[in-house]
Amino acid sequence: MKLKAGLALVAALALAGCDAGQVVSRSAGTASAVTGLIGGEAGQVPVAASYNVTRLDVIVPRSLRVSEENTYVPRADIVWHGDRLGDRYEQVRSIMTEAAQRGTAGMHSGTPVTVQVEIMRFHALTPKARYTFGGNFATRFLLTVRDARSGAVIDGPRIVVADCPASGGQRAMEEEAAGITQRMVIVDHVSGVFQRELSRRIVLPGAEAAVSRNAFQPSDLGLIQ
């Protein structure tokens, strides 16, 4: 009986940390509106991009549900225990802003753009999970890139999945003793995701022809000639 209970718990943790398709509670409506724009869908075309990022806006909607429960699998949109108890929305915004700024730090040439990031899910580990099995830091956000001059949407809105492994047990304690915090791990990983996602655009077949008929030129958009 103990073995079965342990296997069930491991399975539950894996589902909580790795389920890229599940967007909890109030985020679900937004996700369904952009299902056709999720990276990897059939018919989409990744195109190289070169941007000069002039502004970053990170939005953490207050409609997202926060959990302070110290359980293995809290049912919530935001789970964050890496800072002292406080405004979790602002804490998440700070983390994601730092990651976005780091990921776009070298983007100063190409089409001037603004980047909007709307958080849909930010699910780190509770202390109970962190000091036992570990799991995944599960992050989802809606990415929209706009031309800074006209405001026209260049890329998105599309859902970006930015999950990464989260250490547990003895390894987690060793990382903390070495000064490696959960925030550091998340920022380091997510900054790389921003860099990758903003070095390409996801377009539908025929979209390039539509773009060329507008005010933009292919060179402005950083397209491969």
Rank of each mutant, 00 (worst) to 15 (best):
G6L: 15
A12S: 03
A14H: 06
L15E: 00
C18Y: 13
Q22F: 13
S25G: 12
V34R: 07
V34A: 04
L37K: 10
I38C: 10
G39D: 14
G40L: 06
V45G: 11
V53P: 06
V53L: 07
R55T: 11
D57N: 14
I59K: 12
V60E: 01
P61S: 11
R65V: 12
E68H: 14
E68M: 11
V73E: 03
L85W: 04
R88Y: 01
Y89V: 09
Y89M: 09
E90C: 02
R93K: 14
S94Q: 07
E98F: 07
A99D: 07
A100S: 01
Q101D: 04
T104P: 07
T104V: 05
G106E: 15
H108C: 06
V115M: 13
M120K: 10
R130D: 03
G135D: 01
R146D: 04
S150P: 11
G156F: 07
R158Q: 15
I159A: 04
I159R: 11
V161M: 13
G169F: 01
Q170V: 15
A178D: 15
G179K: 02
T181N: 09
Q182D: 15
I186L: 00
V187E: 07
V187D: 06
H189W: 10
S191F: 07
S191L: 06
V193G: 00
Q195F: 09
S199C: 12
R200H: 14
R200Y: 13
P205V: 02
A207Q: 09
A210E: 13
S219F: 11
L221T: 04
G222L: 08
